[in-house]
Structure formats: C-alpha cells, structure tokens
Design a protein around this nucleic acid. Sequence first.
DNA 1: TCTTTGTATATTGTCAACAATCTACAAAAC
DNA 2: GTTTTGTAGATTGTTGACAATATACAAAGA
Lengths: 247, 247
Amino acid sequence: MSNMNAIQHNPTHHTTIQLLQSHSLTTLVQQEIARLIETGELSAGDKLNEWSVAERLGVSRGPVREAFRALAETGLLRMEKNRGVFVRQVSIKEAEEIYEVRAALDQLVGRRLAEIIRPEQLKELRVIVNGMEKAAAKQDVDAYYPLNLRFHDTLVQFTGNSKLLTTYRRIVNELNLYRRDALAGEKGNLLVSTREHKKIVDAIASGDPDRASRALHDHVAAGRERMHRAHGIREPVQITRARKKST
Amino acid sequence: MSNMNAIQHNPTHHTTIQLLQSHSLTTLVQQEIARLIETGELSAGDKLNEWSVAERLGVSRGPVREAFRALAETGLLRMEKNRGVFVRQVSIKEAEEIYEVRAALDQLVGRRLAEIIRPEQLKELRVIVNGMEKAAAKQDVDAYYPLNLRFHDTLVQFTGNSKLLTTYRRIVNELNLYRRDALAGEKGNLLVSTREHKKIVDAIASGDPDRASRALHDHVAAGRERMHRAHGIREPVQITRARKKST
DNA sequence: TCTTTGTATATTGTCAACAATCTACAAAAC
DNA sequence: GTTTTGTAGATTGTTGACAATATACAAAGA
C-alpha cells in the first residue's frame, strides 16, 4: 500500500485505463447511434437493422442489441418485437407534454441558479450568448442550434444537481427528435430567442429566484409557440402559465 | 378487408396475442427483476449474477444481459464492466437531488390538476386517502407504504401527461431504493403524512393552481425532512423553498 | 508475520449458429 | 381483376461456446 504513490501517474495512461474499464462495445455502439441521431444522420422513423449496424461498426449483433435496449429505454429508439427497432417519432402531442415537463424543470434551474451562481459561471454563460448573437446576426442556424443546446445544458450543469441534469437531458433529447423536422423556417426567430437568453442570464445574475424562474419558463413557453408556428398550428392547448406575484 | 369484422374478437385471445407480441424474454426478465427490487427481495448493493438469474428464470444469459442494460438505464441497476451488475445504492446526497426534482414535478402536477381534475377522480383520490388513514391509525406501515405510492402515482396519471408520468416514475423508483432502508422508524409520521395528503386533495379540489402546487411542494419537502430525521441528520442543504405570494 | 507473486476458478464480454417470426411476392382460386 | 394462399428470403429472438477479465487463495520471499 505504501509505495502505491511511487507509480508515475501519467494522465494519458490514466484516462486510457478508465476508457477501457468503462467502455464496452455496447457502450460504444450506444454512443455512436446516439450521435448519429443527434447529428441528423439518422432521422425519426428510420429503421435500424441489427446486422447492418453490427457490420458497419465491426462488432457482432450481441452488443448492438444491448445498445438498442438501452437507447429504447432513454426514448431515442422504439422496439417492436420481431419487427425491428426504429428511431423514435415524437408527435406534436408528445412534444407538448415534453415542453410542459421541461418548463417545470427549467423553472427549478432558474430558481436554484439565482441563489448559487458564481461570477465566472455568469461569464461563461455570457460567452455562449455572445456566440449565439453572432450566429443570429448571420442567420446561421447551423451555428446557432448547438450553442442553444449548450447554453441550456450548461445552465443545468451549474445547478450541481446531477439527477436534474440526467432527467433534463433525457427530456431534451426526445424534444430534439421532434424539433429537427420543425427547424426549417426558424430564421426569423433567432434574434428573438437570443434576446430571451440574455434576459435569462440577467435574471439569474440579479439573484432573484422568482425572476429567474419566470424568465426560463417564459423562454420555454415561447419556444413551444415557435414550434407551433413552424408547423402552422396556432394554439391547441394552454401550457401552464407563469404566475405573477400578485394575489 | 370487409369480412375482418366477422372474426370473433374473444377478449382473452386478444390479450394473449398482444402479450406474445410485446413480451419478449428480455421484457419478462426486466419486469421480474424490477419487481424483486420493488418488493425488497433484492436490496440496494446486492450483486446480480447473470447465470444465476438466467438459471432461475429458465432462460439463457442473452435476454438477462439485455434486461440488465435496460434496468441500468432506468437507474435501478449499476453496471461495472467485467465486475458485474449491482442493485443501485442511492446516497443521501442523491436522495436530496431526487427530492428537489420531484418537488418541481409535483408542483407541476398540482398546478395542472387544480385546473382539470374531475369529480370522480377526486373521489378516487379520497378513497385512497381513507385507506391511508386507516393504515395510519393502526400504525400499519406495510399497508400504508403502497397506498402512498399509489396516491402519488394516481395524481400524476390524472394529469394526462404521459411524459410527465414516465419521468416521475423513474425518479420515484430511485428514491424508493433509498427509502426502503430509511423506512424503519416511520411510525410516528403516518398520521402527519396522511394529514398532508388530505390537504393536497382539498387544494386540488379548490381549483386554485398555486395552492395545489404549494401543497404538493410542501408535502415533498416534509417527506425529505422525515428522511433526514430517520437518519439522524439535521439539515445539510436548503431545498428550494415554497414561495409565498407576497413580495 | 506480512507482503508479494502466481495460479486456479468464477464471471463477464463477445461471437457465431440455430430457431422463430415477419415480409414480399408469386401462384392459384374466385 | 381481385382476393386468397403458399412459399422463399430476410430479420429478429435465443442459445451455447469461447475469449478476456477479475477474484480468491495458496505458495514463496522478505
């Protein structure tokens, strides 16, 4: 035990060991498929063939099947017995539901961050928002989209609540399955959306939990409306409103 | 197509077909293990041996491994490569985090239900609460516990938001991994808890979203405190407070 | 006695083969 | 021409075998 510390802790070796210890073929396949969905190379409704995927990644069907199970559990894939697995389709009704849950989670995020945010974290957020502003000015949706995701993911990370983070990510992943289709005519909205993000950061910086909570709720609600407009639908169901402080 | 309707739709056959179509061995194994954890026959930290489980259920290791993957994704199991799978241990820190997320979700539940609850649904809730009252009077924790779970699950079901339901269930399942240990000296709390449940139903029945939201938030916060007292810990971190309406 | 090293065993990771099921399409019946 | 039925091919579900890794324990050395 005593001379354990004598071992040279080459950081490269260290991470390599951890990589081998944690990453089985199944995990790798899982990550790869998740990536393909995220980048849009696989889109909603596509059928995944076990043998093809196995062939393409140079593994056998076993790990692929296990990866499918895991991804089905996260909601990215749908499995039909004896028929195959498909990239999940998210209906507008489900998107509604997800937006409602996300609003609740984001309210919690705002409330919490207003209490505990640190200056360097605020700076990091403002850097992201600046990037979004530039992308918005150029109407560059491809640059804007990942920054948007990163902004919100960072917010949740800063809460320090890892359970909240995994819950949030799961939800948002599913939402992206819907949004990818509906992201065509978003151009006009980038500037509006950026303004909302600035407002969120300012609200958090003010240290007022209610204000931050409301800013995030309103942003999610606005995003939901943009989704509807993109699909030419007006306003099916009323999402829970942000409540004012008065009576 | 026309004579399809001539087929006798024997309901028994119908469900049998659906059962065969949806339930693969993997699904069965998954459900069985989930049940074993829920009923406490498997408890946190236990190691699961692939071959033993396969033997016991009369299947091969393949489906068992797939079931493990799925359950690991839901948070019920933890997989360590080349070491095995274990029933997940939930630390008090994680329990804290989960309580915070759950509070946010339950607030949403309350707000929503206050708007849309139907009389027969209120009645159903009151039936459950009555059962809890009887169990509490007899200090019968074994009877009380499942009713408590069912009460909250029913609440979320009544929102009609299926995404909220799956999210909620996932969270609560993990919380139960912790609570099972900490449920020893709960006896004195049953009456208090029952009172809170009544308050929740009344708040929902009043149709006031804020009141219902607050009732559920406070109940979750109180549950969190009971957890702490059961472990002899006072108050580590401040969970987000329910906010009064006044400025 | 304590540590270290090596070996046997058990368990998991991966693969390839077989069985069960579905799909597509052609042949037969109406 | 339309529907039904049957068959061939493809795909998934399941299994058992083998390889890689970890664990437990005994033997050797300090």
